[in-house]
Design a protein around this nucleic acid. Structure first.
Lengths: 262, 262
DNA sequence: GTATGATTCAAACGCTCGTTTGAAATTCCC
DNA sequence: GGGAATTTCAAACGAGCGTTTGAATCATAC
């Protein structure tokens, strides 16, 4: 067909990477099941059998797609957290810094719109950057329910989750461990939803909201939201608290009112 | 095979409902793609062709599964909201009541563990209640990216979203419309993640957290979290507020840049 | 009882999928 | 330059999918 890779580019793009790049695109676009190896290898301009030759199976390919990007991403998260802790000299970190260290690398990667890895996209170039594509894929993976996918992500995430949980525990000593686990769960949900970009309920009229918003502005919006949630008054304590009836002014400088609970 | 439905039960369970019930189970368990009509009709104890006879196609079946439950669910949401507004006599509602009106019906439905609809589950009875099953399915649908699914949900949700958005706008007048749209987006993300029950990153050690937790206690935890987020200090305004300790480096002083909105 | 319409059934159709195969092409190394 | 290893290729395999078909069965009204 349109395979012109007889004459290799100056920078020879090997088959493995072409497959990985095409897989990122198509998995993000159609999901893991619906993206067929035939469509995928056509997009990459390689032979159908190449996937099984290089990755053993489709499942192996999926694993490789994640390993290629998730490891550096999580390493960056840990780096940022370590830098914060170094700067804090043993003191607790501000929760917003922790959130930023976790979410920032993802958002920054989602801004990465350089052409894929090593001059890859030979076929029709989709313009979208490799990072951006992977982040969409990652969001999808977060809400995936297949056992294999869960295990794959869990393995990659285990250290990151441990470290960030510890940091948050120190940053929010007034929040009991169980409560904090739940709040991290809510936090992860909000984040996943955002990076997945698949708001099934497009908020109707305000649909345009998400369109063409810059990642930095997303960060500016989500961090206060999550920090407020993480530091919210504890549920079991007293009244329903928060901005309850006397609502309006989101001010709530009663911040450390949440003294309750050990 | 094990099909004994020659002798109908006293309460005749018609084929349509048996299919819908089995579809709920298997779609929730394996997803829409992976759950085949063959497995589904076997579970229901009906003939393979019955799906196409009664629902036209697999897509028609999916649509029917949602319509059967989503319409009543959203009607209940609107009812609760209307009751709140009646009680408030024109005044703004407390945000936590609005959250509860939106999330409550879902959580309550997830507690519904009565046997399916009309004595349905003839095959091996899975014990799980029909409501519970559907909610898991709904959570999955929320993170689904297929165009048809998005449109289906959007159609069912459009009125609910409009009404709740209006209520929140009135309850939180200090939050600009665009900011509120984003915060609703985050809110929906946290909710979807919870009801989907597919936390890919199981928070490792605290994995047991989500296990066997009662819905009411989930509600008690998530409502303060979300209300705090919805009423958080605005990002462009003044300090990062919240529980921010003081210190740390990353201070960005460009604060009130961005004077946007209405 | 018999005609009529609705429903169920076993079987097959056409298609796409992931994977395998064995030969051809290419690359590598001496 | 030649032999071995690696990589690519066209083709096919076998399985599973959603759907269709046409006859058998059932329910209902005369």
């Amino acid at each position: 067909m349109k395979t012109a890779p007889k004459t290799r580019d100056i920078v020879n793009v090997n088959t493995r990477e072409r497959i990985l790049n095409a897989a990122e695109v198509l998995f993000a676009e159609h999901g893991f099941e619906r993206a067929s190896l035939r469509a995928l290898t056509a997009e990459a301009g390689v032979n159908l059998a190449a996937v099984n030759y290089h990755f053993g199976s489709k499942a192996g390919l999926i694993r490789a797609v994640f390993e290629r990007r998730l490891a550096p991403l999580n390493a960056e998260r840990l780096n940022e957290l370590a830098a914060l802790e170094r700067a804090a000299r043993g003191g607790p970190l501000p929760p917003e810094r922790i959130i930023e260290a976790f979410f920032g690398p993802v958002l920054r990667m989602s801004m990465d719109r350089r052409p894929a890895a090593r001059g890859g996209s030979t076929q029709r170039d989709r313009g979208a950057g490799s990072g951006h594509r992977f982040i969409r894929l990652l969001g999808r993976a977060h809400t995936e329910s297949r056992q294999a996918m869960r295990e794959l992500l869990e393995a990659e995430y285990v250290e990151v989750v441990e470290r960030f949980k510890a940091a948050l525990t120190r940053a929010l000593p007034q929040v009991p461990e169980k409560e904090l686990a739940w709040r991290m769960h809510f936090t992860l949900g909000a984040m996943s939803y955002v990076i997945a970009g698949t708001d099934a309920v497009q908020l109707s009229a305000s649909y345009e909201v998400r369109q063409s918003e810059h990642p930095e502005s997303v960060m500016k919006r989500i961090v206060p939201f999550l920090v407020a949630g993480l530091t919210a008054p504890l549920p079991e304590a007293g009244e329903r608290g928060a901005g309850a009836n006397a609502p309006a002014n989101g001010r709530r400088d009663d911040r450390n009112a949440e003294r309750k609970a050990a």
